[in-house]
Nucleic acid binder design. Sequence first.
DNA 1: TGTACATCAGTGAACGCGCGTTCACTGATGTAC
DNA 2: TGTACATCAGTGAACGCGCGTTCACTGATGTAC
Lengths: 179, 179
Amino acid sequence: MRVDARRNYERVLAAATAAFAEEGPDASLNDIARRAGVGPGTLYRHFPNRQALQAAVLSERIEKLCGRAEELGSDEPAAALTAWLRALLMHARTDQGLGGAVLAGPVDLGLDCQQAIHRSGAALLTRAQRAGGIRTDVTVDDVVQLVAGIALAARHGTDPDQPDRLLCLVTDALHSPSE
Amino acid sequence: MRVDARRNYERVLAAATAAFAEEGPDASLNDIARRAGVGPGTLYRHFPNRQALQAAVLSERIEKLCGRAEELGSDEPAAALTAWLRALLMHARTDQGLGGAVLAGPVDLGLDCQQAIHRSGAALLTRAQRAGGIRTDVTVDDVVQLVAGIALAARHGTDPDQPDRLLCLVTDALHSPSE
DNA sequence: TGTACATCAGTGAACGCGCGTTCACTGATGTAC
DNA sequence: TGTACATCAGTGAACGCGCGTTCACTGATGTAC
């Protein structure tokens, strides 16, 4: 990759990160190019569409999230799940709900972003279920969807720690009440 | 109100209902006017902005929802709450998430739409809490937000009865586990 | 090391699109006589 | 009941806007000699 190409790639990525953080998932692509001090064409050279850009912005964070899941793999199963779900909620709320929108969205980012999250979540969930104390009638998809929902609904909320409270409610619910 | 005005009002409302059902909350206003066989100006005469139109479309349903809450007022408290939350979820999912978007949205519809829902919910919730068996550390706002979140996240989901499953999880969570 | 050149990247004006919104005009309605 | 008229409603072409996207052209980069 040529040095100027790499430089502009970085610039666009940084501008996109800032724009998504400020404007949310629907930030204008032209505006992102403008912020990056770059022509629209340059943006398109590197990122063929909005999803590619969103994926690029999120991928680093998603990797961290999956890394965190591995770290938690040695903790007490149920606690590890709870802790990771909290991290997942943080992720889903980043950039005005970009994370959550991608999680719940119709788009398949092509990359294994979402799949990676599901894999990480599945590992923690099934481990906790096998260890007992966590409901077995819940799928990873359910949990991820719930967390995404909390993040999406919270986007325009006024109470800043409502999402955490709701997550607590959900994690409580995961601790099987019947057995 | 003149007879032609009333007629067009109804037409626009019907067209809006259909459009929201098909396209979701962001359906084009020009398109709605077109469906109604009416000029854009006519639409604006009756509904100054999109929110007014959304409110008009939803208001009837919201009234029903509040009516249902009153009906349930004589049932067993916890069961009544659960049943109403299910109805609320149905509402939030109508029209591709229009109900949920309005519930969770930043907009104050001016009307007492959302307030009415909150009032109805509050009545059922506090009654159930007083009767015991329902967590007391949860507010109406929390519950409504959660239901809206489930609806929003479900918008692009593939599993048609996932929302119901998630709601069950939530209602289970409401049944206080600690006491 | 220096130069010529091919290749790749960037530019940015311009396009087409659909949106929300307006407003000068036409037409329908209801009312007063 | 019939007609004149004021008022209210509807029309729809047109506007401005910002969006995503393209492409002919210019410029920077790296390479071969």
